[in-house]
């Protein structure tokens, strides 16, 4: 292994040594280590396959009409209607708040703010992206649950929006930075005011990327559990439209049911997990395949 330890290919002497000492042992090391990197990759993918497989196999027997049309009843029957309808309310509402705020924030970072201000806000936004979601949940608890004396769906909506906004904002900024400067100049040179340059030309140019960012943020929000446990709480009741009351969602449903000593309820947890997983994975795959195709189409990178 002495040849491997040569630090820098600088001198002729070292070159000679490297070339001359090309031994079977070095070739073997190369093969083994390269193989090991491949093994590591397979190793990483085993849990993905195992998990998707287990969820599918365990969930399929439990996905039936009752699961989709009834709320929790008792240990032997019932469904997840409360959670399905809850997610269908919370996620769109949170998206409705987060998408415009995030996109506007990203526009500000990329197009309007001075470089110094943009740096400060970008830093704060990055910190928010990295903040554990449970901390955001605790924040919304202190902000919305304590003052209003009760868990509520709206507190959950706000928590999800707080988690999604920075993700969308940073994505928007990066997408807008990929729009060539010549396009910006072309629009300015037509005599468009800056806000029209942004909304008419730049946002349209980056629309695919912006939608991608929103979809990924929605997928992320859809799976959030911890912040909802301490804001929207979860509920056995089917709650439609009462945003000031607790509401269940698929993630909180999975968590609640997973702790129950009942094969039926755990089966329902698997079923809910499959629905959630399908949604999240489908969103990710579609978006990645689409954007992958676009970037390989020779756009900018």
């Amino acid at each position: 292994m002495s040849a491997v330890a040569v630090p820098a290919p600088a001198t002729v002497g070292r070159v000679a040594r490297l070339v001359l000492t090309r031994t079977p042992r070095r070739t073997l090391t190369d093969r083994v280590m390269r193989g090991l990197t491949g093994v590591a990759t397979v190793f990483i993918l085993i849990p993905l396959v195992a998990l998707v497989g287990y969820v599918t196999v365990n969930a399929l027997p439990w996905i039936d009409l009752e699961f989709l049309t009834s709320g929790p009843v008792d240990f032997t029957r019932g469904g997840a209607l409360n959670a399905i309808l809850g997610s269908l309310q919370l996620i769109p509402l949170a998206t409705l708040i987060a998408a415009p705020l995030g996109i506007l924030g990203g526009v500000f970072l990329a197009e309007i703010a001075s470089p110094r201000l943009a740096n400060v806000i970008r830093f704060g936004t990055d910190v928010m992206v990295g903040l554990p979601s449970v901390v955001v949940g605790v924040f919304c608890y202190a902000l919305l649950v304590v003052p209003f004396h009760g868990y509520s769906a709206i507190a959950g909506v706000v928590a999800l929006a707080v988690i999604m906004v920075p993700i969308i904002a940073r994505n928007t900024e990066e997408i807008l930075r990929l729009v060539p400067a010549s396009v910006r100049e072309g629009a300015l040179a037509l005599g468009m005011p800056r806000w029209r340059v942004i909304l008419t030309v730049l946002v349209r140019a980056g629309l695919g990327g912006l939608v991608t960012g929103v979809v990924l943020a929605v997928a992320r929000g859809a799976g959030e559990t911890a912040p909802l446990l301490i804001t929207a709480l979860g509920s056995r009741l089917v709650n439609v439209g009462h945003l000031n009351e607790p509401m269940d969602t698929l993630p909180t449903f999975i968590y609640t049911n997973s702790g129950q000593p009942s094969p039926v309820l755990i089966g329902q947890a698997w079923a809910a997990a499959l629905i959630l997983l399908l949604f999240v994975l489908a969103a990710n795959i579609v978006v990645r395949v689409l954007t992958g195709r676009r970037s390989s189409g020779g756009n900018n990178r």
Binding site: L48, L51, A226, L276, V280
Partner: peptide, 9 residues
């Protein structure tokens, strides 16, 4: 991208 709660389950 897999939700944490699904991994937890």
């Amino acid at each position: 991208a897999i939700p944490s709660v699904v991994i937890g389950l």
